[in-house]
Design a protein around this nucleic acid. Structure first.
Lengths: 347, 347
DNA sequence: CTCGTCTGTTGAACCGGTTTGAGGATCGGC
DNA sequence: GCCGATCCTCAAACCGGTTCAACAGACGAG
């Protein structure tokens, strides 16, 4: 059966006509709402299938009171965001929502990405690692639920889902201390909330485990990690160099690994190295980096839940969900030479 | 000025009322179409700005004859797709279109991704590395322009944008031959169009350069690459092992590198290794892999162009754009030992 | 002074759905 | 046989824009 308007897809009116009912009845029948009799329902469904009818999305969105759309702003190049999106998609579906993606690219900044979602009538905004100003976040939150994922913010009315960065670093410190390390260094400064948390976790865990920790300035790139190592090596008194380096991110850890290789230091023989994020990179056998998993799935679920609670649950108070990170031990961390003296390892 | 309907965003009617004109005039004024006088135009723009008016996207899409939407189906986890998307976004904007993203995730397969885009009234479909059946592709292409990016397809009416896989592999073979390699192996079989092309390029370039090439079965994962190396090493007559291994993808190359490291073979000292895709992985210093850049930006531009030609240019014939790949030489390839020793080639 | 043009603006139709109040059948109860 | 309840269905209003035929008013020409 060809559609009544050649070239154009069939509309609800076509289905209704084909089934001998009104548009209204056809709509009810297709949406599964009660009202139409079983016979009518079947007839409409049948005609719709034969015609290959599909509801016009914009029309549906316009007509419905609610859109049930969750807008997600992601950094398209970020592997971590990709992972989150994957799980958000699934979680949204379970909650009866649809996810709409708005990528941040070179030509499309975060502000534009958000605008696109708002124009599209998304009911809530999930921002992955947002970098918008606090003021802007608050403006947005005044209009609809906003959830910041993976990054702390002081913006009122903005829900936050993140993992406990201090605990994450503490896990690493404890792991290294248990291996016998006494001299640690945290690579990666920065003034952001994340960096601050990690530093605090580092210091507290250091005190708890009786290890000595120092901080080395570093950024968020591979090169920054390499530079940090070089600066460490320039420091006089090479004898008491740290035996373990904790990098802020897996990428930074890669830079650290490279710089160590350049000067002939073995990992983990001479120095143990750890990353953060447990990105696909860390899992590569060639990298094999001890890292911290922030739990993408749990974060995704929590973010969707937070949005849905505001939309359907009537919550109006700010929520901050802090998830426990998980240590993933791989080959880049091991006992220091001093501790290994009695227990040599072969390679 | 507060919106006239508290809780709801202002509509065009509100703007029109505020400016003392009809909805029709307000629409014309805001869209920049000619008709309204300069004074009216300014007044409407002013009121719209004061009210914070933004057009309701679904309504606009519904009302307009054309949506100017380009739907893109991507593998959300693929770094290469992310790169493509980035450039497609930019190219679409230049062409006066908007990109809509539909990710393929664990719970959302390619078919669903496509359906979402069709329901959303996208005017054309750009499928990145599509794996839909040829029949399905043809069905889709019968409804609207479809462009397959990065993967050949025999589907009629489907435009294809890809890079010349045979030429890409040939570039690598020539590079290695110039370095002095005489015994090569291509890791990665498979029956797909891509694998076939690469194999052909390998064989032809082998003949041209006088190198001896063999094929080693392999998949598309890191593990497959490692397995291929192990099988090679099991082969008797280790003396005439290949001095260079060409992996199908960068990921496979990583597996190859790992397996070689496991048995203590140096790269590129004992064996040269190359990848394909020039992914971010290959660029990591720790990996530093000679690879082939498929030109994401050029592919993106070509894909958007193909779609726009069909939509606005009236093209109805099938287009297949084959772009020239580019060799990126890094540290994983170098002269073979034998070249230094001047060992004659034998068989 | 009349007519034709041109410029701006209007009002209504339309896009394709959803929602709802009203009304027609059908049926059981009395 | 009449009445009210129950069950379906319908027609119309509505969502918020875009588009266009029709028209009012200003203006210049004849």
């Amino acid at each position: 059966m060809a559609p009544p308007h050649p070239g154009h897809p069939p509309t609800l009116a076509d289905v209704a006509a084909g089934a001998g009912v009104s548009k209204g009845t056809a709509s009810l029948a297709l949406s599964g709402a009660d009202g139409p009799s079983a016979a009518t329902r079947a007839r409409v469904a049948d005609v719709a299938a034969r015609l290959g009818y599909r509801a016009n999305r914009p029309a549906t969105l316009l007509a419905r009171r609610r859109t049930h759309l969750l807008g997600v702003v992601m950094q398209v190049r970020s592997g971590y965001h990709a992972e989150l999106v994957d799980h958000v998609q699934a979680a949204a579906e379970v909650a009866g929502y649809e996810m709409v993606l708005s990528p941040v690219t070179r030509t499309h900044d975060e502000e534009r990405a958000v605008t696109t979602l708002l124009d599209g009538r998304c009911e809530a905004l999930l921002l992955l690692g947002p970098e918008l100003a606090v003021r802007r976040l608050e403006e947005l939150a005044a209009r609809r639920p906003v959830v910041a994922v993976g990054r702390r913010t002081s913006a009122r009315a903005v829900d936050v889902v993140r993992s406990a960065d201090d605990d994450g670093v503490a896990l690493v410190v404890e792991h290294l201390a248990a291996l016998g390390h006494r001299e640690l260094a945290l690579v990666g400064g920065g003034s952001g909330a994340i960096a601050r948390d990690r530093r605090r976790g580092f210091e507290r865990a250091g005190a708890r485990t009786g290890t000595r920790g120092r901080l080395v300035a570093g950024g968020t790139t591979e090169e920054a990690g390499a530079a940090a190592v070089r600066s460490l090596l320039r420091t006089p008194g090479r004898a008491d160099l740290p035996t373990a380096l904790l990098a802020q991110t897996d990428l930074v850890a890669l830079g650290v690994l490279d710089a160590l290789a350049d000067v002939g230091l073995a990992v983990p023989g001479d120095v143990s190295v750890t990353g953060y994020d447990d990105s696909p990179l860390a899992r590569l056998r060639r990298v094999d980096l001890t890292s911290v998993d922030q739990g993408a799935q749990a974060q995704a679920v929590a973010a969707v839940t937070a949005a849905v609670e505001r939309l359907d649950g009537g919550r109006t108070t700010r929520a901050e969900v802090v998830l426990g990170p998980r240590l993933v031990v791989r080959g880049s961390s091991g006992p220091p030479r001093s501790a290994a003296a009695g227990r040599p390892r072969g390679d």
